[in-house]
Simulated scan of single mutants.
Amino acid sequence: MLTYLRKRIISSALPLVVVVVGVFALARLTGNPASLYLPLNATEAMREDFVVRNGLDQPLWIQMGRYFGGILRLDFGTSMRTGQDAADMALRAFPATLQLAGMTMAIAIVLAVFVGSAAALKPNGILDRFASFLSMTAASIPDFWLAIVGIWVFAITLGWVPTSGVAGAAAWVLPVATLVMRPFGALVQVIRGAMVSSLSEPYIKLARSKGATQYRVVGSHALRNAAAPGLTVAGDLTVGLVNGAVVVETIFGWPGIGKLMIDSILQRDFAVLQACVLLTAVAIFILNILIDLGYALLDPRVRPSAGARGRRRARSARRGNPTEIKDPAATGASV
């Protein structure tokens, strides 16, 4: 397990570095921040002083070296817009995004497990066809369109919920309902397919022949074996929510990391943008490691140690060494 975990950490660290370097370089292509932070009648001397004070007069590779040196000292720079520490601004905004993503995925997983399991009980039945239509529709609706329509219908026309903000439970309804559609649709398809496969296995027939109730067959046997693919897809969707809730947070004025990124891009606030990207990338990196670890715990076949033991048993069998073979059927012995 430790070998598997170490390999996953190493393979996931490279994309983290590439993303940080790419964002650092691309942010500089948005233009000179002096044109935003200085008045229109600013003199050339004022512009040069602004550039020097913010370290923008150095070559790009020197700026990048200083930036990575600051990361090692946990110094992410200061916001040009507010004068606050960039890391503090990112850390204050990130919990709002995590709360929104966590609430969304919790609702999506519960609904998808219920709908997908119910649909798998009678494949091609009425409930199965309705669940397939509902899931494909939910997965195909663009988030920005659903957010705008939701504001127009439920906030402006009916006045049931606020248009933006985080004050009160009603403010969560539209953002969560908008974000939950895509993961719900994808998870229903995955869980339904995995459950159909699990319910057709011999151990399910054996459990039913022993008098197991439908609830026990579905909940204790089939759903447990269908959890591995569902966990993988749910993890990927969670990563997408943490990384891609930018549009929804901007539309609903949600004070999360996505909205802060957009504001930083528009204001060319490089330090805050880089801190947001690095924090998001590290969170996704940790989440991917946890997903891989959970998948390895659910399915031992993906562990390198299990594979090594299997290869050793196979080599021993080819050499004719019966002491390495634990299955009596493999040696032709009667049980």
Rank of each mutant, 00 (worst) to 15 (best):
K122H: 12
P123C: 03
P123M: 05
N124C: 05
I126N: 10
L127D: 09
L127A: 15
D128L: 12
D128F: 07
R129H: 12
R129L: 13
F130R: 13
A131S: 05
A131D: 00
A131T: 03
F133K: 10
F133S: 11
F133E: 10
F133L: 15
F133M: 15
L134T: 15
L134G: 11
L134V: 15
S135P: 09
S135V: 04
M136K: 13
M136E: 12
T137K: 13
T137L: 14
T137W: 12
A138H: 09
A139V: 14
A139L: 12
I141C: 01
I141W: 03
P142A: 11
P142W: 03
P142H: 07
D143K: 08
D143S: 15
D143P: 10
W145Q: 04
W145Y: 11
L146D: 03
L146T: 08
I148Y: 08
I148D: 02
I148S: 06
G150F: 00
G150V: 02
I151C: 01
W152P: 00
W152V: 12
V153H: 04
V153K: 05
F154L: 05
A155G: 06
A155C: 05
A155N: 01
I156K: 02
I156A: 02
I156Q: 03
T157M: 03
L158W: 13
L158Y: 13
L158R: 14
L158T: 10
G159W: 00
G159P: 04
G159F: 01
V161R: 05
V161N: 06
V161C: 09
V161W: 08
V161M: 10
V161Q: 04
P162D: 09
T163L: 09
S164D: 07
S164W: 09
G165E: 06
G165D: 06
V166H: 10
A167M: 11
A167E: 14
A170Q: 13
A170N: 13
A170V: 08
A170W: 12
A171D: 10
A171K: 12
W172V: 15
W172P: 05
V173R: 01
V173Y: 02
L174H: 09
P175G: 10
P175M: 08
V176H: 07
V176A: 04
V176T: 10
V176I: 13
V176W: 06
A177N: 06
A177F: 15
T178K: 04
T178E: 03
L179W: 10
L179Y: 11
L179Q: 05
L179F: 15
V180Y: 02
V180A: 04
M181S: 07
R182C: 05
R182Y: 15
R182V: 11
P183F: 02
P183W: 01
P183L: 08
F184H: 04
F184T: 01
F184R: 04
G185V: 05
G185P: 00
A186G: 09
A186H: 06
L187T: 01
L187I: 05
V188Y: 00
V188A: 01
V188W: 00
V188H: 03
V190R: 00
I191L: 07
I191H: 02
R192Q: 06
R192K: 08
R192S: 03
G193Q: 13
G193R: 11
G193C: 10
A194K: 02
